[in-house]
Design a protein around this nucleic acid. Sequence first.
DNA 1: CTCCAGGGATGAT
DNA 2: ATCATCCATGGA
Length: 313
Amino acid sequence: MQLTEIPAPDFDLAKTLDSGQVFHWQKIDSGFVGTIGNQAVHVEQRGEMLRATVASASSRCLEKHGHDAHAMVARYFALDHPLAQICASLPNDPAINAARDFCRGLRIIRQPKWECLATFICSSMKQVAHIRQISRALRERFGRTRRIDNYVVQTFPSARRIAETTEKALRECGLGYRAKNLLATARRVATGDVDLERFAALSDVDLRAKLCELPGVGAKVANCVMLFAYERLRAFPIDVWIERVLREKYFPRARKLNAARVHAFTQEYFGEHGGYAQQYLFHHARMSKSKSKIQRKRKSPQGLPAHLSRQGG
DNA sequence: CTCCAGGGATGAT
DNA sequence: ATCATCCATGGA
């Protein structure tokens, strides 16, 4: 058990953990508990300081990976990212400026590769709350229990562990049709057919292509994994939220968006840290929508004005 | 109750 | 190459 204090300027822990890039951290009194790899972590932010408690199964486990608790936590939360420079490198336009201001201190963290891949395979056509629920179900059923301070957390199950389950068992975790994809991909990773660590040496284009060979992985999931687990800060995942933003803010006159054209635009316009731009636009759009669902324009049936189309009342 | 979600695979144009 | 459809689930 190690308790460390880590300087963390330009960092907002809560915003980072609630931005839809990672799904398992649990909010507790003035902090969060979760896991980094196989180690349980209790972390809380006090101003520009991070206070973290790390527990591992064996004390050698930390040294074995060449990390003490301090370095491991700092690396996970990407405290070494030059956030001021990154923000300054983003385009100067109204949408980005508003999102950047709203997301101050939000960092793109470095997640374990398999955990990130598996979680995003489960993310298709699911709301963030659902993904959190699936992640928790997989951990509770197949993960390993760890205790940290007076809390209990579960590690994310390895590919090998998932590979030896059944589609039925995965469906019982709420995965629906995604169960088959997760199982198939887990098997390919578990057998060594694909080596996610080795993928780190590939170029962006080759990495994306290799990830897209896996069942349940298309361009969007591949880009999420590249951004959140492979440190590819150019990767620009386009989901329904981002597509909405792009359509409204950057292609207001387009009839239909061509995927290849949009991809080319995002790479060139948002630049080498486009993934940060994407995450800021995503989080800002998602947060500002959930608050202002009042007075949202709704199309009324048969073209009737909204106030005349209500049934009953 | 209905709506919709950090999509992907498949088959028809 | 684009487009429509299906796939399961549960929070809002």
